[in-house]
Nucleic acid binder design. Structure first.
Lengths: 202, 202
DNA sequence: GTCTATAGGCTGATAGAC
DNA sequence: GTCTATCAGCCTATAGAC
C-alpha cells in the first residue's frame, strides 16, 4: 500500500510527499485538499492517484515513513555506541532527530486523530514501541536505585510531553543552538528522574 | 461579535457551544461541518446563523470564553489566597482547572492554527499573559536564589509543554486521582526549577 | 427563532484521451 | 504518467415562509 512509485516520473511521488508534508503541517490534514497538494507539486489533482489511492493513504504513508526512519535511526545509534546507552542519550537523540524534522514531528502527534481506525492502530503501535525506550530506562534506573521517581508512568509521560512540546516553540533562527537546547533538556530530564549524580548517572 | 444570544430559545446557543466544543475536540475544527454541529444540537444548520455569523466565530467564541474563564479563575485564586502564591500553586491550579475541562484545554492549543489572523493574535495575547505567570515566578525565584535554572525561557516552555501534555493522556477513569497527578506534577516542576528545598520552596 | 430550500462553490475520486 | 472533464456529494452561508 502506498510507496508504490511509478516508472518514469519517479520523483513526482517524492515531490507529492514533500508538498503534503508541508501543507498538512501548516494547515492540518482536514483543511488540505488534493488540489492544493497537486498545485504545490506542479501537477493536476488526478495525477496524485497514480501514486496514492486516497488522501488518507498520503497521511498514513508520511507517518509510517517517519516512524520507520525514527526507529532505524535509533537502532543505528545503538549499534554505533560503545558505552552503555543512558536516558541522556535518548533525550539527546530525540531532540536532535526531531529538531531538524519539525514538520514530521508535528504531524505525527497532531494528526493521529485524522487516521482511520486501522491506520491509527498501526501508528499507535509504532509509538508505543518508541516510547517504551525511555519508560524502560526509567524503570531500570529506579530498580538500580540510580533514579528516584514518584511515579514511573506519569514521569515518562511528562518527559515525552516535554520533548514533544519542542515543536510548538522551536525556531531554527531562535536564540539557542540545537546543542544548547539539548543540554538544557538533558539537565531537566535528569532532574525529573532524580538522578543521583546530576550529570553522571543519567 | 458572537455571544449575542437570542431572546426566547436562549439556551440553544449554549447547546450549540457544547456541541461544537465536543466535535471540535474530537474531530478537529476543519473536519466538523455546520450540519454536524446543528444535528448534535437538534436544530437545522440554518438556525446556527441566528447565534454565530460564521463557523470561525464559533471557534473563536469558545477559545475566548475559555481564556477569560481561566484568567478569572486565577484572579479568584489569588484573591482568596492568604499566603504568598508560589509556583507550586500555579501548577496545582493549572492541573486542577484543566483536568476537568479537557476539551477546552485540547482545542485551545490544537486549534490555534485554525484561527484567522486577527482572531489568532487575540488568543495569542491571552496565552502570553497567562504563561507570563509561571515565567515571572521562575525569574523571581532565580533572582532570590531560591531556584537554580540553566535557562529560564526554555525551562518555562518545558514546564508549559509538560502541563499541556496532560491532555494527550489523562483519562478520568485512569489509575491516578486528580490529587495524585497534581502531587507528581508539582514534584516534577519543583525539581525542574532546582528548588532549594524540594517541597518547601516552590 | 426555526424551518425548508437553495445558491454557489469546493471536495475526493474516476474515466478516457494522449 | 499526466492531462482534461466530470460525477456525485458535501460545504458555508443566505432567503424567505411560518
Amino acid at each position: 500500500m502506498a510507496r508504490t512509485a511509478g516508472s518514469t516520473g519517479a520523483d513526482t511521488v517524492e515531490r507529492l510527499r514533500e508538498a503534503a508534508l508541508e501543507l498538512f503541517a501548516r494547515e492540518g490534514y482536514a483543511a488540505v485538499s488534493m488540489r492544493a497538494i497537486a498545485a504545490r507539486t506542479g501537477v493536476q489533482a488526478g495525477a496524485i492517484y497514480n501514486y496514492f489511492p486516497t488522501k488518507q493513504d498520503i497521511l498514513f504513508d508520511l507517518l509510517v515513513g517517519h516512524m520507520e526512519a525514527l526507529a532505524t535511526a535509533w537502532r543505528e545509534m545503538e549499534r554505533l555506541s560503545t558505552a552503555e546507552i543512558r536516558l541522556a542519550d535518548f533525550v539527546r537523540f530525540h531532540v536532535r532527530y526531531h529538531l531538524v524534522r519539525p514538520r514530521e514531528m508535528f504531524i505525527s502527534y497532531m494528526e493521529l486523530r485524522s487516521l482511520e481506525e486501522d491506520n491509527f492502530r498501526r501508528i499507535r503501535e509504532f509509538r508505543r514501541g518508541y516510547e517504551a525506550i525511555p519508560r524502560q530506562m526509567i524503570e531500570q534506573g529506579m530498580a538500580k536505585g540510580a533514579f528516584d521517581v514518584l511515579d514511573a508512568e506519569v514521569t515518562t509521560r511528562a518527559i515525552i510531553a516535554l520533548l514533544n512540546g519542542l515543536t510548538t516553540w522551536y525556531r531554527e533562527d531562535g536564540r539557542l543552538s540545537l546543542g544548547e537546547i539539548e543540554t538544557v533538556y538533558i539537565g531537566l530530564v535528569s532532574r525529573m528522574v532524580g538522578a543521583r549524580e546530576e550529570e553522571g548517572n543519567v
